[in-house]
Design a protein around this nucleic acid. Structure first.
Lengths: 375, 375
DNA sequence: CTGAAAGCGCTTACAG
DNA sequence: CTGAAAGCGCTTACAG
């Protein structure tokens, strides 16, 4: 790379053997090898500069106590001076029995899950486990991701956030690692190394629609999708139908719009219902994002929330509190799910039993629902 | 792990030497080594099973053409059968002269940047470069992240998304790699391996506030923060002040609320202004998220947008179009910035000159601004 | 407390 | 077209 020789960058090419070299304020340690001419400082370079063996450098880097304080000081000084950065590839390749936990996050743009991933990392602090997070596409294979992570980091266990287990029972079992499914009810999977923690999505959906019914709503549109196997989203909708039935109302499939977890899809779904002249006074959306898309579609049609149509979302993301009107939503206990995921996984890793936990959830009163209009 | 011996998981412990083993439908290849008893399939195992050398397996895995079709087929069959997954640690450790580009994304919960990161990956498709993305905390050191990525992947170049260059000129120069700063104006950094691409944030800020002035607003609150060095956010605010001055209005520091890129912070900032009895008829926020927090604070005080107060945001995230009222915002040409970042970086990698590009941006008319109320 | 040596799983000239 | 061998940068028993 010719640009390395530009004087304005205060860099000078230098053979590896020459060791350290000062140019201006910048300490430059340089290697020219096989066409590569970018500075790479390895443990070997540090060892040479500090006058110790690579074993000793490694010991210092790994905070082992059996190192002479003087050696340690010299090594640390050189590490800093030479800007040494450990090559994790090499480290991982060798270090087999690490205490590592993988976190597979399915869905890059799902802010609820991203927040929960942060909660998981937070909950993992001080546990002695290294948490390795992998963000994958919503449609990607989470088990493959977990296997890969295992290959590369020798995980002791995995936490899955937001993965869909639809028809994946065999994959789950074949991943022979303690695993916790967060936000997903996985109690139908009968495998001793599988736990799950979530809310009771069906009851949550029932609660939300129950509230709408209490307010006098009878024609309630539902947004979401039913999977082949009942996943979280489907359960929420099933719960909605439960509430209708319990109130002696019938479920009108014409008021269901199949939408995914995007603003655009929800917007279009509700627009379609309106265009078809469907009559409804309330909407239950299987996610907050869907609810926001829905509200916009209502607004486009001149309908006001909650005066003309009540809307309830799901998840309880931070944004809901800042919307005008604030969105009424079913709040999942995000932090608690995160913390319990870590706790349960650690328990399993320590040889404890698996468990399938259902946490209570809450209907957060916003400003987006109101009693049904007379007439 | 005792659970591996659970019959329901269809697994059986087996010495490595024993090779393959069928249990039920599941093909299980097993190793028991040093306390670890989770199946690890390596290239060596595949080689043995396919009856070739590891070199040949590696060639197949790397899609080299100099392999006998028969060998290739046998290897691929075993790879599939044995569920072989390549250990990237080992691969990266050895494979030095890869065509790889690093993408450092600063800010986990910045949806504008996350979307742009996806655009970058999209733009990178078919370039022959592997794109390696690292998401770091907003406050983390992006240069350290880049160095680490370089250590582990021998990057040819780096794209920084959303990093703050405040006082980091030396770090930039010391990172002796072609680098592109996206969304940041870095033309003050005089280094031949540094490029940047962004909008002219100052002019954009001026345009936004200019629009508010056209509508008759004179008391305009500003949300954001000024850095020591002028970064994007500061530039937007400077531009706002430019617009005021050009219109013969003076900038009232009392109408500035220092807030960061969170809903909560913007909400509190505007609440404070209102609590202090500050009078303003419009708000210019340095990001859309800030604008949303601001609108909520206005609503809490009984003020309506845009009837009582006009609000303009910045970035043009998808959500703005779905809000009610839709948020008027300065749209950054996200896709174009992403595409040009990749193009410019590749040019530099090929030995081309660096460049600092300013792209035009657009004021997207929403429903959140209106002429100032009489009286 | 320290260093020489083996080896993690892979890739890649090199010699057939 | 193929395999034996060297080596990427590290960690970790092992023997001092």
């Amino acid at each position: 790379m010719a640009l390395l020789l530009q004087p304005r960058c205060r860099c000078r090419a230098l053979d590896r053997a020459a060791g350290l070299f000062y140019t201006g304020q910048t300490l430059t340690f340089w290697t020219v090898k096989g066409g590569e001419d970018m500075r790479i400082v390895t443990i070997k370079d540090v060892a040479k500069a500090a006058g110790v063996s690579i074993s000793t450098v490694s010991r210092v880097l790994n905070d082992r106590q059996d190192v002479d304080p003087g050696s340690r000081a010299r090594v640390l000084a050189m590490v800093k001076k030479m800007n040494y950065i450990r090559n994790q590839n090499a480290s991982n390749l060798k270090q087999l029995n690490k205490a590592a936990i993988g976190v597979i996050l399915a869905g890059r743009s799902n802010s609820f899950l991203i927040s929960m991933a942060e909660d998981v990392l937070e909950a993992g602090r001080g546990t002695g486990f290294q948490f390795i997070m992998e963000i994958i596409d919503e449609k990607a294979n989470p088990f493959l991701a977990a296997r890969k992570l295992y290959m590369e980091h020798r995980l002791q266990g995995v936490i899955f956030l937001g993965s869909n287990l639809e028809g994946q029972e065999n994959e789950v079992k074949r991943l022979e690692l303690p695993q916790v499914y967060a936000t997903i009810e996985a109690n139908h999977i009968d495998c001793a190394h599988v736990s799950s923690i979530s809310i009771n999505n069906r009851r949550a959906g029932k609660m939300a629609v129950g509230r709408l019914i209490e307010l006098g709503h009878k024609n309630i549109a539902l947004l979401g999708y039913f999977s082949k196997v009942d996943d979280s989203t489907g359960q929420r909708l099933h719960g909605a139908v439960d509430a209708l039935h319990e109130a002696g109302l019938s479920y009108d499939p014409g008021l269901f719009a199949e939408v995914d977890f995007t603003l655009a899809s929800a917007h279009e779904g509700v627009k379609n219902l309106l265009d078809q002249g469907k009559k409804f006074t309330a909407i239950f959306a299987a996610s907050d994002i869907m609810a926001i898309g829905a509200i916009r579609a209502l607004s486009d049609a001149g309908l006001k929330v909650p005066q003309d149509v009540s809307v309830i979302g799901f998840d309880g993301i931070e944004l809901t509190r800042y919307l005008v009107p604030a969105l009424t939503t079913v709040r999942q206990p995000r932090k608690q799910i995160a913390q319990e995921s870590v706790r349960i996984l650690r328990e399993m890793i320590d040889g404890g039993k698996n468990s399938h936990v259902l946490l209570p959830c809450e209907l957060i009163a916003g400003e987006s629902i109101a009693p049904v209009k007379e007439g």
